[in-house]
């Protein structure tokens, strides 16, 4: 009886979006007289930070700092339609809609600024700090606050825009299965090191190295929070979780967090995240949807590492100590 070490690898891809019934999201953008921009959506922030990302996308497109953008979302009286937050679609679909709306609003903003500065709108650019400047002559400028005031009170213009992003519905071919179920794909490769106690069947995950390719890290800190959390969830899925421990039997289902097992802080491995960015052709600034993908590769990587350590395959999730011991016993019995 001994503690045995093993390592395993897995590589995966993951589709962005859910194109069974068409996959639309809309956005509206308008400026207030304060020179701030309001983005109106009906998308849901699940705690992952959707509002923050939409603010950064709008800010980059219009050319203002992120804190000048306010997100009003998840109200069906005010927000235009969104299919919902699922299928790794939020950033990609809503982000594209916000870009389109923000571009339209930016164009009106530049037209108003052009009238104030008596130049052509195509000669203007934003400095990213809240001002519109003449290209090549930055001393000639106007603040976006003043542009908003002018639009509202003098020029009679609405600095606003409409955005719509729709992936049309794809119907699978009955015979061949030809279909377009999603758009761009994110990628990952995960390497896991484990120790397995061949007397107790207990698995200790030592290290998890994840390489994720996500198109574009729109906000690297938020990318990190999602990818690390996903990696932990993958470990939990591989080794701990089930509502029906002896599926297909319905017995022994957990009803609270005392019975439903998940790893605690002491059970989490050293987790390394490396991010590659190959911008997608159709994503907002090249972003793909990594929200679901990041919790997948750890599961087979752990399974493969357990085999590498003790030479038995557990092809049923979760890979519990009981299943490992039963497999070891079966192997010993020949």
């Amino acid at each position: 009886m001994a503690i045995r070490r093993g390592r395993g690898v897995a590589a995966i891809n993951y589709p962005t979006g859910m194109n069974l019934g068409g996959d639309p999201t809309q956005a509206l953008v308008h400026s207030t007289p304060t020179g701030n921009f309001m983005v109106t959506l009906s998308s849901v922030d699940l705690g992952q930070g959707m509002k923050q990302i939409m603010a950064q996308i709008c800010a980059e497109t219009i050319g203002v700092p992120t804190d000048r953008v306010i997100i009003d979302t998840a109200d069906t009286d005010t927000g235009p339609h969104c299919m919902g937050t699922f299928a790794s679609r939020g950033t990609h679909r809503a982000g594209n809609a916000v870009i389109q709306a923000a571009k339209e609003a930016r164009q009106v903003m530049l037209e108003v600024a052009a009238e104030e500065l008596e130049v052509d709108a195509s000669d203007l650019e934003t400095d990213g700090h809240g001002n519109i400047v003449v290209k090549g002559a930055p001393q000639k400028s106007i603040s976006i606050f003043d542009v908003a005031l002018s639009a509202h009170f003098k020029r009679g213009r609405s600095i606003s825009g409409r955005g719509m992003f729709l992936i049309p519905r794809s119907y699978p071919d009955k015979e061949t299965g030809a279909m377009k179920p999603s758009t761009c794909y994110a990628h990952a490769c995960t390497l896991v090191e484990v120790e397995v106690d061949d007397e107790t069947g207990e698995v200790t995950v030592l290290t998890v190295k994840n390489v994720f390719e996500i198109g574009r890290a729109l906000n690297p800190k938020m990318v990190e929070q999602q990818l690390v959390g996903g990696s932990w969830m993958g470990i939990s899925h591989a080794l701990y979780e089930t509502t029906e421990p002896y599926y297909p039997s319905r017995d022994h289902g957990g009803t609270d967090f005392n019975q439903y097992l998940m790893p605690g802080p002491g059970d989490l491995a050293e987790t390394e995240i490396i991010v590659l960015e190959r911008p997608s052709a159709d994503g907002p600034f090249g972003a793909k949807g990594p929200g679901e993908m990041c919790a997948n590769p750890q599961i087979p990587a752990v399974a493969n590492a357990v085999f590498d350590a003790v030479g038995v395959r557990v092809d049923t999730l979760p890979i519990t100590p009981e299943r490992i011991l039963r497999a070891l016993k079966a192997k010993a019995a020949g």
Partner: peptide, 12 residues
């Protein structure tokens, strides 16, 4: 880019 790719603190 100015805002995209920047690790801005979450406003929420």
């Amino acid at each position: 880019l100015n805002e995209i790719g920047q690790p801005r603190p979450r406003l929420d």
